[in-house]
Design a protein around this nucleic acid. Structure first.
Length: 491
RNA sequence: GGUUUCGUGGCCGAGUGGUUAGGCAGCGGUCUGCAAAACCGUGUACAGCGGUUCGAAUCCGCUCGAAACCUCCA
């Protein structure tokens, strides 16, 4: 590989050179959504972060198998193990089949992701479709002695595991402290220790999502699915596992424990975690009830939104921050993103019609290298964007005749812009497809603008202004530029 | 309370020992019948107090403030 990528590994808490186990193949697993509600801005962050990782690894020549699961079982709603399954709860409230809910929100999730130009993963396994694998995993853990059965449920013996391995290697916490600080929760009599967690849970009579198992009719534990599906599709040990920072403990910590207990070897080599999106300085999340769904952003129909924001604006906004930093939502920040995106795309468009000169006064190769350097340094998209904006200045300067560019450099700059803006950052010009592609409309508009042009040549300003005003009232915006009048639909 | 992380100019957000991050807004200018847009130029900021150093936003200590995790959570 020509590009040496370094990435921040949560396991070691530092940046490390990325070396896949069996290049050029790379295994990438990312925790996907729990489909019991619409995706909100917070869900867009890991999707876009790891879409960037997926796109870049592919770009530099790796063959990536990207697995992102759909969680449609488990994940208990209330404290400890006495709660009911989130999906099941919603189902009963609305008198729908659980799988109907799952399908409905999965479809909507896919739609939102497509809008954000997030590429589909290579495999998108459902937890409910891997009950057999999960039961197998429970058996393995029982066989290796790191779990015990109690009244139809199976619990992971964290204390025993911690004696031989390090439960806490990822999150950096010690089990002793955790033991001291864990609250007393009801319904935990079955557990030998408070830190133990269920890997198979017997279903209560009213619990409708349930599967037969050697221990009881029940359902798999919260952390089991990712271990089971990750190992199934990527191997017992694989390259990269990603997800939100809020999953580090206990979810990912427990995933490691389950995998090591079952397979006796290391689970994941590089753990990557994206930071949270905040609103008023606080995490945007389901439980805090302060989230804004992606659909609401796209439509602008939500109390705290001053306007609609297009999917690609949202994408640009998220990529403007490095994935390990928190990112604070505000209308002001989003509007800034919208304008910046527009300027970047306008320059990309200008680039297509730029004329070359005999030689260059610009360092295009240097710019290109800086772009790669930024991405190689832990996928630093904001730095990449800063360099691209330097490119924007170059393009406009050439257009103004202040700088010149050779044919070779022009070609290189075009390639650089295309690769980084569209292929890697995954941005796109949304305006292009939505308006102005209809032949009839295009013809009519051309006729009208021609008439206006003639009026302007005769300095018949009232007529010219009248045409513009009438079009404005139809939501069509006309702007007189040096190259003539251009029109577009107002947002 | 414990663990971890953070505090950068009006806003968002990089950087992390010595040289301009970048975007948006603002200001100045160019273009322009008007309007809008576009383009160019422009800002010495780094929570506070000490310390280390020739030199700190960057390292160390303390203080203040904020967040995440410890319970489902992207």
């Amino acid at each position: 590989m020509e590009n040496q990528i370094s990435l921040y590994n949560t396991l070691t808490r530092r940046k490390e050179l990325f070396e896949p186990m069996s290049p050029p193949h790379v295994g990438l697993y990312v925790c996907g959504p729990t489909v019991y509600g619409d995706a909100h801005l917070g869900h867009a962050r890991p999707a876009i972060t790891f879409d960037l990782v997926f796109r870049y690894l592919n770009h530099v020549g790796y063959k990536v198998r990207y697995v992102r699961n759909i969680t449609d079982v488990g994940h208990l709603e209330n404290d400890a193990d006495v709660g009911e399954d989130k999906v099941a709860k919603k189902a009963r409230l609305e008198q729908l089949e659980p799988m109907e809910i799952v399908q409905y929100f999965t479809n909507r999730y896919h739609h939102d992701m497509e809008m954000l130009n997030v590429l589909p993963p290579s495999i998108e396994p459902h937890a409910s479709g891997h009950i057999i694998e999960q039961i197998d995993l429970v058996k393995k853990i029982l066989d290796s002695g790191y779990a015990y059965e109690e009244n139809g449920s199976v619990y992971f013996d964290v204390v025993k595991y911690n004696r031989e391995h390090n439960y806490g290697k990822l999150s950096g916490r010690s089990i002793e402290e955790t033991l001291e600080n864990t609250r007393d929760l009801a319904g935990q009599e079955e557990k030998h220790n408070q830190v133990d967690f269920a890997i198979w849970k017997k279903a209560s009579p009213e619990h409708i999502m349930r599967w037969p198992s050697p221990w009881s009719s029940g359902f798999p534990g919260w952390h089991l699915e990712c271990t089971a599906m990750g190992c199934k599709y990527l191997g017992d040990t694989f390259d990269i596992h990603g997800g939100g920072m809020d999953l580090i403990f206990p979810h990912h910590e427990s995933e490691i424990a389950q995998a090591v207990a079952a397979n006796g070897r290391d689970h994941v080599r590089y753990w990557m975690h994206n930071n949270m999106i905040t609103i008023n300085g606080q995490k945007m999340g389901k439980s805090l009830n302060n989230f804004i769904t992606l659909g609401e952003f796209f439509s602008g129909k939500q109390a705290s939104l001053e306007q609609a924001y297009s999917p690609i604006t949202i994408r640009f906004f998220i990529l403007q921050a490095q994935y390990r930093s928190t990112l604070d939502f505000s209308n002001e920040a989003l509007k800034a993103a919208e304008k910046g995106l527009k300027r970047l795309l306008a320059a990309a468009e200008t680039l297509r019609s730029l004329a070359p000169s005999a030689n260059s006064t610009l360092d295009v190769a240097g710019l290109r290298q800086k772009c790669y350097d930024a991405m190689n340094d832990d996928f630093n998209s904001p730095i990449l964007m800063a360099h691209l904006f330097d490119g924007v200045r170059m393009i406009n300067s050439v257009k103004d005749g202040k700088e010149t560019i050779s044919a070779t450099d022009l070609d290189l700059l075009r390639k650089t812009f295309t690769v980084f803006i569209f292929d890697i950052l995954g941005l796109k010009d949304e305006g292009k497809s939505s308006a102005g592609n209809d032949e009839l409309v295009e013809g009519l508009m051309q006729t009208i603008l021609d008439i206006r042009k003639e009026a302007k040549l005769k300095k018949d300003w009232p007529t010219a202004d009248k045409i513009r005003e009438h079009l404005t009232s139809l939501n069509i915006e006309v702007k007189d530029t040096k190259e003539g009048a251009v029109w577009g639909m107002k947002e």
